[in-house]
Each structure stands twice: as structure tokens, then as C-alpha cells.
């Protein structure tokens, strides 16, 4: 039943390696972009607040498939952005990461904002009273405490991101679900085995993520 795995025809590990890379690059990117967005949404500058709010509310409500295909057909094929990639494979990968970051950043931003709300207002007041600037108050006092409060919800975002990388198949990035499509076409008799293998692969990626971050969340929790 699992013979197709031994045939040497499918590079299962390679495909999942692309999934892992998509996840890691997108995770780092959306963590940074989400933090910037959250900073904008709590900033004292009305224009930044307005941009942050508008961006989050527009982008998180667009289906990821639409975003990623728009990156490929719109940004790349129509407007000519290649993001420094040389070939189809590289460009596709980078466009997919861009779409995933643009999308996932909104969820990171909102998780962080809820974390910021768990930091007592007195913490920021004490920091301002010492003469710290807005940026210092945010980066030294508020965000470090906010991050510790939202590690568990961020783990959810990361797990969702891992699975969302399958959308990159829509623009031909050779990750796990694209390989699944190919296997289904060729191995119709082992359909459930194909599903099982791909599902297991994702569970193996996401389960430790959830467990590890759950443990980290407990360890770094701020005691009040």
C-alpha cells in the first residue's frame, strides 16, 4: 500500500523541506511585520494608527489564495517584480513568502495587541516617568511583556501558518501539497495512504511546535 514511497519517484522529504522553509521564512517575516503593525496600532500618531487599522482589517479578510495568486499574477507577471529571484522556482517561493507574511502579519498584530492589553497601564506610566521615549517604552517594557502573554496564541498562528503554506501550491511552489496532488494523480489506488502520509507529515511538524511553545509560554510568563 505504501509502495509508492519506495519507488524513488517522489521526493517526500524534499517537498516537506520546502514546506518547512516556507513556514520558517514566513514566520520570521510575519513576526516582524506583525510587531510593526501592532506598534502602529498603539502609536500616538493618528496616521500610523489609521494605516495599521485599515491594513489589518482589509488584509486579514482577504482569502489567502487570492493574496498569493495576486502576488504571482499581479506583482510578478503583470508588474514585473521578481523579488530578486532568478528562476521560476525561486520567484514563486519568494512571492509565496511575501503573501504569507502580508496575511499572517495581521494575525500576529492582533494577538500582540491583545497581549499589550494585558500589560497594566502603570508599567508604561512608570517607564514614561523615567523619561523613556514612546519607542523605548514600547520595545523595552510593553512588548516584552506582551510577547510573553501571547506565546500560546502565537503558537496557534504559527500552526495555522504551517498549514497555510499549502496555498503556495496554487502558484506552483513545490511544497508538500503539490507533491500530494501529483501522488493522487499517479497513485489512485493508494489514495488514503497518500492522504495519510501528507497529514502525518503536517502533524509531525505542528504537534511539537504547539507542545514546545506551550512549555515556553509557561516558563516565561510574567508573574505579577
Amino acid at each position: 500500500m505504501f509502495d509508492f514511497l519506495d519507488s524513488g519517484q517522489y521526493d517526500l522529504l524534499g517537498a516537506f523541506w520546502v514546506t518547512v522553509q516556507l513556514t520558517l521564512y514566513s514566520a520570521v517575516g510575519s513576526l516582524i511585520w506583525g510587531t510593526v503593525l501592532a506598534g502602529m496600532r498603539v502609536s500616538p500618531v493618528p496616521l500610523m494608527r489609521a494605516f495599521g487599522t485599515a491594513y489589518v482589517n482589509v488584509v486579514r479578510n482577504i482569502p489567502l489564495t487570492v493574496l498569493i495568486i495576486a502576488c504571482s499574477l499581479g506583482l510578478n507577471q503583470t508588474l514585473g517584480f521578481a523579488l530578486g529571484g532568478d528562476n521560476f522556482k525561486e520567484i514563486g517561493f519568494r512571492l509565496a513568502v511575501l503573501g504569507l507574511v502580508a496575511y499572517t502579519g495581521t494575525f500576529v498584530c492582533e494577538a500582540l495587541r491583545s497581549g499589550i492589553n494585558t500589560v497594566p497601564v502603570g508599567q508604561a506610566e512608570a517607564a514614561r516617568a523615567l523619561g523613556l521615549s514612546f519607542f523605548q517604552v514600547l520595545t523595552l517594557i510593553v512588548l516584552p511583556q506582551a510577547f510573553r502573554a501571547v506565546i500560546a496564541p502565537l503558537a496557534n498562528v504559527l500552526i495555522a501558518l504551517t498549514k497555510n503554506t499549502t496555498v503556495a501550491a496554487a502558484i506552483g511552489v513545490a511544497e508538500a501539497s503539490l507533491l500530494m496532488k501529483e501522488m493522487i494523480e499517479n497513485e489512485a489506488d493508494a489514495l488514503f495512504a497518500v492522504f495519510g502520509v501528507i497529514a502525518l507529515g503536517f502533524v509531525l511538524l505542528t504537534l511539537p511546535t504547539g507542545l514546545l511553545l506551550g512549555w515556553v509560554a509557561k516558563r516565561v510568563a510574567v508573574k505579577r
Partner: peptide, 29 residues
């Protein structure tokens, strides 16, 4: 900010930075 640095403030609810040690609290500013 510069002026606030010259004005020390002590709050009813202490407001020590919860994620930093006592020493770090006094060093930070």
C-alpha cells in the same frame, strides 16, 4: 521625556517592571 527624567515618581501600585529583576529596574533608566 528629558524633563520627566528629572522628576522622580513613586506610584501607589509600585509599577516595578514585572519582567525585569530588581537590579534591572534600577539600572534601566
Amino acid at each position: 521625556a528629558r524633563l520627566r527624567a528629572d522628576v522622580g515618581m513613586v506610584f501607589q501600585s509600585f509599577n516595578l517592571f514585572a519582567h525585569k529583576t530588581v537590579l534591572e529596574n534600577v539600572v534601566l533608566g
